[in-house]
Amino acid sequence: MPFRWLEDAPVSDAGFEAWGQTVEECFRSAGDALLALMVANPEAVRDLEERSVAVEHTDLELLLVRFLEELLYYKDAEQLLLRVRHCSISLDTEPLRATALLSGEKIDRDRHWLSADVKAVTLHRLSVRHEEDRWVATVVVDL
């Protein structure tokens, strides 16, 4: 798993550090972490439906927030649990832009072991950084 839970996340909430060799992989790992917070067996989420995402922001960290919020949006508005498939991020445009193809399926309480419903992606400890040979994001979510 290209992410780990933050042991020192705020008492009421949860957080994770997600990484990848590229910024795209890092965003995808962050999406996987968000899914794993909500479903204890994310491997059970099948690829039955596709959605796409296109978000913009001048700030890379807030771009990640917007990106993850799209996953929360589909979870609430369409009851879809989605994984990031193909992701593309342009770091040399103004504003920065992330597009992605998502795939997953409707929530099924019999097969998906639901855990915490994520309310919001917060700005607390938020960071997206390039460290030597990888990109790392730190995200804290409100539960």
């Binding site: 807030l62 927030v65 949006y73 919001a120 700005l123 409100d142």
Partner: peptide, 15 residues
């Protein structure tokens, strides 16, 4: 999710 998104939208706008 309604309230959560309202709060998120304005935090991101104000910051």
């Amino acid at each position: 999710g309604f309230g959560h998104q309202i709060a998120s939208d304005y935090v991101q706008q104000f910051a």
